[in-house]
Amino acid sequence: MTETFYALLPDRAVIRVSGPDRVSFLQGLVSNNIETISAEKSGYGALLSPQGKFLFDFFVYQQDEDSLLIECERGEDGARAADLFKKLRMYKLRAKVELTDVTDSYDVVAVFGKNALSSLSLPDTPGSTAGFANGIKAVDPRLTAMGARVLLPKNGLAEMAAIGATESDVEAYHQLRVSLGLPNGSEELEIDKAILLENGFEELNGVDFKKGCFMGQELTARTKYRGLVRKRLLPITITGTAPAPGTAIMNGDKEAGIIRSVHGDGGLALIRLERVSKGDELLADGAKITVNIPDWVSLPESAA
């Protein structure tokens, strides 16, 4: 029985950034170090507001010697990708950069399961990247347990069968994702409100504090160095009828968090660390909520 699965991710878009200033242009905007992106290494990062609040997250790949690819949320009717495209174009100014929406040229595929990386001949190293069937294969830059991401030229899904992967569906992908504690853009991160470090970006290789300035850096750095993280996006297990996203999680008469997403009997919730202790009985609209802390999460000592 196969231990490798793949799922087409229809809610993803791809934007090409080409031209001689492509790296320096993105370097001043994005939370991660774009200078490290190469044919062998892909990355994950975010674009923030000047005030340091979340706007977009995405993966960055090198397409060729002159181009980078941004894999981002598509959104309903392409709205999220269009907003990101407009934002990048706004900051382009005189940079020698060309922006092109190439979503129609690619299928974005998640490959997951016990043998996902070995099936693709990829090492257990976040972001490790190589060419694949005229496209790109990359270990998930956030967490190797999530498997890999593949950008395939349209109508190339037969390549998945060729590596011995079994077709799955996007819900199976999301159930694994939330169990590992990985956010999916605006599904769990409130636009213009969410803070990167409350949502795991430091541990998930999504922010580089040594790269120099980027938009929103001041708040992000202050949050880190002043120890201001009081909430964390964490996996939850739901026992009972699943509450809707946005439902408050209660610890007695105190609000302990907010459910951000639900997939199967799990989901992600933004938890107020000071209001949850081990063994507490948490409820959300009558359902029992258990908070899980993945191994990769680093909590303040008082909240661990």
Rank of each mutant, 00 (worst) to 15 (best):
F214N: 01
E190Y: 05
P235Y: 10
S186F: 00
V262S: 12
T247W: 02
G28D: 09
T2E: 13
K193I: 11
K86C: 11
K86I: 12
T4V: 14
R80N: 12
S105N: 14
P294D: 01
M250T: 11
I271M: 04
R226Q: 14
E159M: 13
Q62H: 12
V111T: 11
E76N: 11
K211Y: 04
D124K: 14
Y106N: 05
D192I: 04
R94S: 07
E187N: 08
K114Y: 05
A39D: 07
L8W: 07
I136S: 05
V97P: 01
E65N: 14
V14N: 09
E203L: 05
A256E: 05
N115F: 05
S49R: 04
T241K: 12
L180W: 01
S67R: 06
L69M: 08
A303Q: 07
L152D: 04
P183L: 13
A148E: 08
R260H: 05
I195S: 08
T2P: 15
I15R: 07
K224Q: 15
E202Y: 10
L157F: 07
G78Q: 01
T2N: 13
G131E: 15
D101Y: 06
E255W: 10
L233M: 06
V150M: 00
N251C: 09
V229D: 07
T223Q: 02
R22A: 04
F201A: 09
V97L: 06
A110Q: 06
P235T: 03
D285R: 02
C213W: 08
R149T: 14
K96Y: 08
R80Q: 14
A130Y: 04
S31C: 12
G212Y: 06
K114W: 02
T239G: 02
S186W: 00
